Simulated scan of single mutants.
Amino acid sequence: MSALLPTPGAGLVKRFAGGDANWLIALDRGQRGAFTLRDGTRATMGSETHITIRDEFGGTQRTVQIEGTATFTVTPSANPGGPSFAVRAGTVTATASGTGEPELVR
């Protein structure tokens, strides 16, 4: 099962790469789009954005790597005490606080 569910007709999935470990979603200049991750988290991507998602997403970890701009509406973990949702951008990591309600991470 893939780590993401692209929005039908959004035209945002430019390419997938890495078969073994990662999925890469890339948007070109002028493109914008949205997709839903396997855990129900919704990502809205800006122009010239790349998001990398590991195959383990939703199981042992819920971390995405981003270059560019995106907003995430985070779904709480399905398992109590499960992994928190996190976004890495360069050397910075933003982690959802785990309030049990959907959260917005920018």
Rank of each mutant, 00 (worst) to 15 (best):
S2W: 11
A3H: 06
T7S: 13
P8G: 08
P8C: 05
P8A: 11
G9A: 03
G11W: 02
L12Y: 05
K14Y: 08
K14D: 14
R15F: 02
R15N: 12
A17F: 11
G18I: 06
G19S: 15
A21P: 03
A21C: 09
A21R: 15
I25F: 03
I25D: 00
I25Q: 02
I25K: 01
A26L: 04
R29C: 04
F35S: 02
T36Q: 07
D39K: 06
G40F: 03
T44M: 10
T44D: 13
G46A: 10
E48Y: 11
T49Q: 01
F57S: 05
T63D: 14
V64W: 03
Q65I: 14
I66E: 00
I66K: 03
V74A: 07
V74E: 04
T75A: 15
P76I: 11
A78H: 12
P80Q: 10
G81Y: 07
G81N: 10
S84H: 15
V87G: 04
V87F: 00
V87A: 03
R88K: 15
R88W: 08
R88H: 12
T91S: 11
T95W: 01
T95F: 06
S97F: 09
S97P: 08
G98Y: 02
E101V: 10
P102K: 00
P102R: 06
E103A: 00
E103I: 08
V105G: 00
